[in-house]
Amino acid sequence: MAWFKRTDKGIKTSTEEKKDTPDGLWYKTPQGNIIHTRELKNNSYVCPDDEYHVKIGSKEYFEILFDENKFTELDTNMVSGDPLKFVDTKPYNSRIEATISKTELKDAVRTAVGKMNNLELVVACMDFNFIGGSMGSVVGEKISRAIDHSLKNKIPFLMISKSGGARMMEAGFSLMQMAKTSAKLALLDKAAIPYISLLTDPTTGGVTASYAMLGDFNIAEPGALIGFAGPRVIRETIGKDLPKGFQSSEFVLEHGFLDFIIDRRQLKNRLTTLLNLLKN
């Protein structure tokens, strides 16, 4: 019965010497599938078992899109001010400082220029980790300047949206970014420079109501939440149950608000094909 009893020849490890599995080594999808984080990264952060697209930020999108992850970041040191002296549970300035320290991001969007399959491209990518990807003055200004760079150098522009909407701590200053970015995109259209908008999970609020839906091509990742108000708010407002899959990218595509849905693993090549078609 040695199988069921520890013997002197068995492996003995003291409690002090036992080691836990390092955090972050495995990822579990909402469907319960488990994948090693290294395999997940090599698969463009898509779980191969259920095709779940893990929520990622600008760092990961730049790695996926830019050749050899080489790019020049634009307007790197722009930080939000506090024009309204907003105070909730703590001053807005303090929250900005704490979020910068925690995320190592300066605000909710990063902009960069580089090559994608040898094609020049300007990319603006939002980060949900920075106050829910909220659109404030810095977000609007950095996107506007990225568009200016596209205009000046006649380079296509890609916007990757991931946002909870306008930043309430900046109130009207935040809402003004909708008009500013939309006006800049009109100049891009006038100059016949391609603008592709990629909507990821989630894209809501003032971002959806402005630059996210103004692309020459509006595309999205599978299963992304896309809408203005959230499902709960809509349900409580109209007093009715919502259709199955309401506000998913598949639902939005079916109702004519998207051009197509794209798997993240195919994103770089599909964008290259699309831009080559537009160029020719």
Score class of each variant (00 low, 15 high):
1 M>S: 12
2 A>N: 12
3 W>F: 15
3 W>C: 09
7 T>S: 14
7 T>L: 14
9 K>C: 05
10 G>S: 15
17 E>Y: 12
17 E>S: 13
17 E>T: 09
18 K>F: 08
21 T>E: 15
31 Q>P: 01
38 R>L: 10
44 S>F: 12
49 D>H: 14
53 H>Q: 12
61 Y>V: 06
74 L>Q: 07
78 M>V: 14
80 S>C: 11
84 L>E: 10
87 V>T: 09
90 K>I: 10
95 R>W: 14
101 S>G: 04
104 E>T: 07
110 R>M: 06
111 T>S: 14
114 G>K: 01
121 L>K: 02
121 L>M: 08
122 V>Q: 00
124 A>I: 02
133 G>S: 02
153 N>R: 13
153 N>A: 05
153 N>I: 04
156 P>L: 08
161 S>G: 04
162 K>R: 15
163 S>V: 03
163 S>H: 04
168 M>G: 09
169 M>Q: 12
171 A>Y: 13
174 S>F: 04
178 M>G: 08
180 K>V: 06
180 K>C: 00
187 L>C: 09
190 K>L: 10
196 I>W: 07
197 S>P: 06
211 Y>K: 08
227 G>C: 03
235 R>E: 12
237 T>K: 15
239 G>D: 00
240 K>F: 05
245 G>Q: 12
248 S>T: 14
272 T>P: 01
279 K>N: 12
280 N>D: 09
